Amino acid sequence: MSELNDHPESAVYLNGVEPHDAPWPDNSAPTGDAAVDSALEPLSGISSLPVAEHSGIYVEIHDSLMASLDDEER
């Protein structure tokens, strides 16, 4: 099975911008739920971290959101 990255010439470009040059999306609008906003706070600096560290941040966010849901059920 070939990977998408094996064929860079076939990469899909969005608005003529190569994927590695695309700007990081800014979805920092508050949700209105303090627990969710607090859990999502680490996303504000994720673009400055190496990609290898992103999964750890996502795990922390997931765990924090799950803990908030568990607290609400009690």
Rank of each mutant, 00 (worst) to 15 (best):
A35Q: 11
W24C: 00
G45N: 11
P42T: 03
L14F: 06
H7C: 02
V17H: 09
N5I: 10
T31P: 01
E9T: 05
A34D: 07
E60H: 11
V36K: 00
N27R: 08
V59F: 03
S68D: 12
P30H: 02
A34V: 04
L4T: 14
I46G: 12
V59I: 14
S38G: 14
P30R: 00
R74M: 09
D70Q: 12
D70Y: 10
L49T: 05
L69M: 10
E60C: 00
Y13M: 12
G32M: 01
D26N: 14
V59P: 00
D21R: 15
N27H: 10
P25T: 00
L14P: 01
T31C: 01
T31L: 01
H7V: 03
I46L: 15
P30V: 00
S10W: 14
G45I: 07
P19I: 04
D21H: 13
H20L: 06
A22F: 11
D33T: 06
Y58A: 06
V51H: 14
A35F: 01
S38C: 05
L4V: 11
S68E: 08
L14Y: 03
P23M: 02
H54Y: 03
A52F: 04
E60L: 03
V51Y: 15
N5Q: 13
L65M: 07
M66G: 02
E3H: 13
N5G: 09
M1E: 07
E72A: 13
S44W: 15
S48P: 07
N27Q: 10
H54V: 04
V51Q: 15
S55G: 05
N27G: 08
H54W: 13
I61K: 07
G45E: 11
L49K: 15
A11L: 14
A39V: 02
V51N: 13
A34N: 03
S68H: 11
A39L: 03
E18Q: 11
S64Q: 12
S2K: 12
S10D: 12
A67N: 13
E18C: 05
S48K: 15
E73Y: 10
I57E: 09
V12R: 11
N5P: 04
R74F: 09
D21I: 02
Y58N: 08
L49W: 04
E72Y: 11
A35I: 00
L69Y: 12
A11S: 06
P19A: 01
V36G: 01
P30F: 00
M1Y: 08
D26R: 14
